[in-house]
């Protein structure tokens, strides 16, 4: 493999990681502040993609679709929080897992009911079509570079939000001491709704951005949900920094594993067997990574606060 190809693959890994980060950021925020495991986060991602595709089809504008996905997912998040989620904060993780598992069933089948059984069409905007040349001669899709930029901006935005704003102060207070913040006179119910809606909006945005280069279909949120959980567990649940680093770690390990492992096994065995063993191992690679990290650091890389 040439160096240029290796760098391109590394970039692919980072880009995949950034996509995972968009998804994981909301998940880890909601867990950090409210202590809630939300399996239905993938459903919000799906809703974002479906809204974006529908609005883009109706208006012809991807950007309007993007706005719709942000607003729609945030609204869906707020409604779900008020109707269901807020009853789960004082429950144990078990009830949370089951309730949000039920929400997945409702959202998936509800989406299919409304939008039908066939995948929807969503294309990237004209301004971001095409590929740009990288130093070294490789071509790289402009849209993927844009996703990296958006991901970095959001990571930076979240950092500013949490460290510099009043809302962020309350979020930090909520993370460290949930009773205390109520006693200080902060309207904790509203705060939780806002945080949940924020997390949902991030998931919706991720769904719309990723939907444009993948398939907008029912059930699209589930594989990425599991990956996002792997990410936040590796990074340390509740930590935005951990989510970013965990996401990039997972993205790079997964991408390079897919490329390098079959080649690696070819050193010892025949090509077809090497492909088969290498591919099998590659699909397990991130779970192995997670097991190793948790075996060494049971709280993840950047454990935040108590949990």
């Amino acid at each position: 493999m040439t160096l240029a190809l290796f760098i391109e693959q590394l970039l692919n890994g980072i880009q995949f990681g950034v996509m995972l980060f968009l998804m994981a950021a909301g998940l880890t925020l909601v867990f950090g502040v409210m202590g809630l495991i939300n399996l239905a986060h993938g459903s919000l991602y799906m809703i974002g993609a479906f809204l974006c595709a529908t609005v883009a089809l109706a208006t012809g504008s991807f950007w309007l679709g993007l706005v719709a996905s942000l607003a729609g997912a945030a609204a869906a998040g707020a409604i779900v929080e008020i109707v269901v989620i807020r009853r789960l904060y004082d429950r144990d993780h078990l009830d949370q897992v089951l309730a949000t598992f039920a929400l997945i069933l409702i959202f998936s089948e509800g989406t299919r009911w409304v939008f039908g059984s066939f995948p929807l069409y969503l294309d990237i905007p004209a301004a971001l079509q095409g590929a740009v040349s990288l130093p070294g001669g490789a071509q790289y899709p402009l849209y993927r570079l844009s996703i990296i930029v958006v991901g970095v901006l959001i990571a930076f935005g979240l950092y500013l939000l949490i460290s510099r704003t009043r809302l962020g102060m309350r979020i930090r207070a909520g993370e460290s001491d949930r009773e205390m913040i109520g006693a200080l006179g902060v309207d904790i119910r509203t705060l939780y709704t806002v945080v949940f809606a924020l997390g949902a909006a991030l998931a919706g945005l991720a769904g719309a951005l990723v939907g444009a280069i993948q398939s907008v279909q029912v059930g699209m949120g589930e594989p990425v949900l599991i990956l996002a959980f792997v990410v936040i567990v590796i990074g340390g649940i509740g930590s935005i920094k951990g989510a970013l680093i965990g996401a990039i770690l997972v993205g790079v390990v997964d991408t390079l594993g897919r490329i390098l492992l079959p080649n690696f096994f070819e050193l010892f065995m025949g090509p077809s067997q090497a492909t088969s063993v290498g591919s099998a191992l590659a699909s397990m690679a991130i779970y192995i990574l997670m097991a190793i990290i948790l075996a060494v650091k049971p709280q993840g890389l950047f454990a935040a606060g108590s949990q």
């Binding site: 867990f31 495991i37 993780h93 897992v97 959980f229 792997v230 567990v233 649940i237 997670m290 097991a291 948790l294 049971p298 709280q299 993840g300 949990q307």
Partner: peptide
């Protein structure tokens, strides 16, 4: 323990 156990 906790969520980590669930996820691992």
């Amino acid at each position: 323990s906790g969520v980590y156990f669930i996820m691992i």
